[in-house]
Design a protein around this nucleic acid. Sequence first.
DNA 1: CAGCGCATGTAAGATGTTACATGATTCA
DNA 2: TGAATCATGTAACATCTTACATGCGCTG
Lengths: 195, 195
Amino acid sequence: MFDMARESRTPYAILGCLTIAPMSGYDVKQFLERPISNFWSESYGQIYPALERLEDDGLVTGRDESRDGRERRVYAITEAGRERLRAWLERPAEAVTFRSEPTLKLFFGANAPLDATLRHVRRLRVEAEEALAHYREREPELEAKLGEDRHAPYWLAALRGGIATTQAILAWCDETEALLREHGGPSTSESEEQS
Amino acid sequence: MFDMARESRTPYAILGCLTIAPMSGYDVKQFLERPISNFWSESYGQIYPALERLEDDGLVTGRDESRDGRERRVYAITEAGRERLRAWLERPAEAVTFRSEPTLKLFFGANAPLDATLRHVRRLRVEAEEALAHYREREPELEAKLGEDRHAPYWLAALRGGIATTQAILAWCDETEALLREHGGPSTSESEEQS
DNA sequence: CAGCGCATGTAAGATGTTACATGATTCA
DNA sequence: TGAATCATGTAACATCTTACATGCGCTG
């Protein structure tokens, strides 16, 4: 009977980043863009207002700093912020509502020339290979830090999740190309002629 | 120098559904909710206005129908609609921007008790198992229709994508549980005591 | 001195979800 | 008769992206 609106997860993502080190809004964005963090993204339009809000709520403290003569506003997480983050981390996560445009295009592929759909599949394959190469590059660093860095096991787990699903997609791309070549109907205009 | 705003994909998802059969807004929603279509979702708040818009643009035609005494407005795709859909299908798909709350919580798991993170992993595992069971149930129907139904190969490909990634996640859950048990730090409150 | 990377922000608009409102029919 | 399902829609709101505006310092 009351509005259990889904909270934005932006502030939590930011709080999480600040448990690694104090950061500016710019830093947060940079960190979230590293390929390892391919399961999340935020834009400046969300980060800066969210940081202000977090400061008002006493979950972070900001102070102006100059590094290399550049003015930055660097935020640090407070004890209240850590507690808020911890409480959120302990609540059950919402199931992922996955919206994949490539898969949508594949699914309705019967309405387009086979070639077009095969192009999507091949592009997916290239992207998967690139992603996998990035992951593989980062894996050893995290493995090496398993004992020292408290974040390492969790980051490694997330990274290996990326590796596992990406490998699966890679293999699936090949199967799919074969499946569609055999059963995907005539490759170009023939499919549209009768009416 | 001009606003290449990302188009909403809602109308295309709807057009795609209407290539299967004429449907009401309600039908579209039902279809999109079937577990096979777990890579896309739309809410009524988007479907009904989008259908009106599509009709204004001449991409679908609606007519009132009564089935079992119930009034429905059933929409059919027009030739212009098919062409619009085909053109969209042939354009490159946008890369998936994945936002996974469970993975975000895992990634920042060092800030919570190990148990909390393990709960997320185990929940993910249960969900993956359920999803896999659904997929497996539907696979044979599609395989049987490979020759007859022009959609079947594409739907099967999408379904097998779900199977492949879900299996990968399942295996990863087990590995992750082991990894975190070994390296995830003290299991409960010990980790917070010193400060 | 031009361009790039660093750095912070705002405004506008699109996108999307949720709750609500309404009403009919079917079934237990 | 009451609940569930069918069926259509709207209003309010939250969310998020994009483009824009601004300015500094470094490097070629």
